[in-house]
Design a protein around this nucleic acid. Structure first.
Lengths: 205, 205
DNA sequence: ACCTGAACACCGTTCAAGT
DNA sequence: ACCTGAACACCGTTCAAGT
C-alpha cells in the first residue's frame, strides 16, 4: 500500500494517495480513521528497518551506537515524521514495540537498572531524532548575513567549520559524548565488575 | 504585535491573527512575505528570553548547562516552533544571532577550538529541542496496550519509571551524560592545563 | 464491507481596487 | 504605504447513497 511515497512528504496528501490507488479520497476513510493513522502506519514501517540487532550479541554501548546511527539515517530520509513521533503513542505499532523491546532488553542485560532504561532510551532517541531533522536543514542555515559585525566569534566559528557533512560531524560529536557520559553514569551506578572493563560489561542475561 | 499568542499555536492562523488585529487577512501580507516569516519572528522573540548570560562569567560547562535548561524550558512552551527552527536560516534574526555569539564566545574562551564550536552547539541544541518536544508528549506515549506480552522487558521498564516528570528525568540523564562526554572530549583535545581541573578551565579570553 | 460524489469548513495566498 | 474584498487553489473530513 504505502510503499509508494517516492515523491516526498509534501506530496503525501489524502487526495494524491487516493489518486495513486485509483480510488476516491473518501474511500481512504474506510481503512484509516484520520491521516494521523496513516503517518503512524508509515512510522511503524520505517522503524522495522532500524538496526537493533546488536543488542542480542554486542555490549550495550556498541549496540546502542549502531542503533542510534541506523535510527538517524532512517529518519533523515523521513524527516517529516519526526514531529509526529514525538506525540504519537506507541500502542498498536508492532514493529516499533519490537524494536523498543530489543533495546530495553539489551540495556538491562548490559547492567542498566529497569527504572533507568526508558530514560536512557528517550535521551538517545531525542538526540537522534533532532539530529535527523538537522541533517535535512539547508547548508547555509548559520549564515549570519549582514549581522556578521555583531557576531564575530560566531561567524568565524561558522567559517572554520568545513567538514564535508557538517550535520554528521555534529551528530558524531554528540553521540560520542552522550555514549561516553552514559558509560560513566552506569559505572557509577554499579560496583566495579570483576575482570572486564566497565565499558565492555555485559552483565547478566 | 505578536504578543498575542496566548491561545496556542493551533489557533495561530493568519485569519485569526488578522481578526485579533482587527484587520483583513490579506493586510498581513504588507508586513510579512509568508507565514514562515511570522514564525521566524516569533522564534527570534522566544530566543531573546533564553539565558545565555553564564558564558560571560561562568566556566563553559556550567554556562552550557544553564543555557540548555533555559532553552528546553522555553521551547517546551513553544513546541510547534521546533520543526520550524530546524529548517529556518538564522540570517536576519538579531536576538538569535546574539545568543549564538554569546555561546560561541563562551565555548571558545573555555578552550574549544574554533572549528569544533558549532558542532558542540548543534549537538547540544539538537538534544535540547527534541527534549522540548518530548516534554509535550502525552504521558501514556509508551503504553504498549495489548502487545505487552510481546515486549515484557520494555513494558516492565515503562512500569518501573515512576518519576514525577518523566520527560525531565530523561532530559537530566541525557544532558548530564552529554556534558560529561564533552568535558572528556575537550580534555583529550588540549594538553592538561596547569593548576585548575579541566572541567573548570576558562582558557584565554 | 467497501466504494462514489457532493458537500463542508477550513487553510495560506494573490490581486485589483481603493485611501 | 497600507488597507479591503473577492477570489483561487488547495487541505482533511463527513455523509448519504449506492454495490
Amino acid at each position: 500500500m504505502a510503499l509508494i511515497e517516492s515523491r516526498g512528504y509534501r506530496a503525501l496528501t489524502m487526495a494524491a494517495l487516493a489518486r495513486e490507488l485509483r480510488v476516491s479520497p473518501s474511500a481512504l476513510y474506510n481503512h484509516v480513521r484520520a491521516k494521523q493513522d496513516l503517518l503512524r502506519w508509515i512510522q511503524d514501517h520505517v522503524n522495522e528497518g532500524i538496526d537493533a540487532s546488536g543488542f542480542a550479541t554486542e555490549p550495550w554501548d556498541v549496540a546502542l551506537e549502531r542503533w542510534a546511527r541506523s535510527y538517524r539515517d532512517a529518519y533523515a530520509r523521513h524527516a517529516p515524521l519526526v514531529p509526529v513521533i514525538a506525540v504519537a503513542p506507541v500502542a498498536g505499532a508492532a514493529h516499533t514495540i519490537a524494536m523498543y523491546e530489543r533495546v530495553a532488553a539489551g540495556l538491562q542485560a548490559g547492567g542498566w537498572p529497569a527504572e533507568a532504561v526508558i530514560d536512557v532510551i528517550v535521551a538517545v532517541e531525542s538526540f537522534v531524532l533532532a539530529s535527523a531533522l538537522d541533517a535535512t536543514s539547508p547548508p547555509d542555515i548559520f549564515d549570519v548575513g549582514d549581522l556578521a559585525a555583531q557576531a564575530p566569534v560566531f561567524a568565524a566559528a561558522v567559517a572554520a567549520r568545513r567538514a564535508a557533512d557538517p550535520a554528521r560531524a555534529a551528530f558524531d560529536v554528540g553521540l560520542t559524548a552522550l555514549l561516553d557520559g552514559l558509560r560513566t553514569r552506569l559505572a557509577r551506578l554499579q560496583p566495579a565488575p570483576s575482570g572486564e572493563t566497565s565499558s565492555r560489561a555485559r552483565g547478566v542475561n
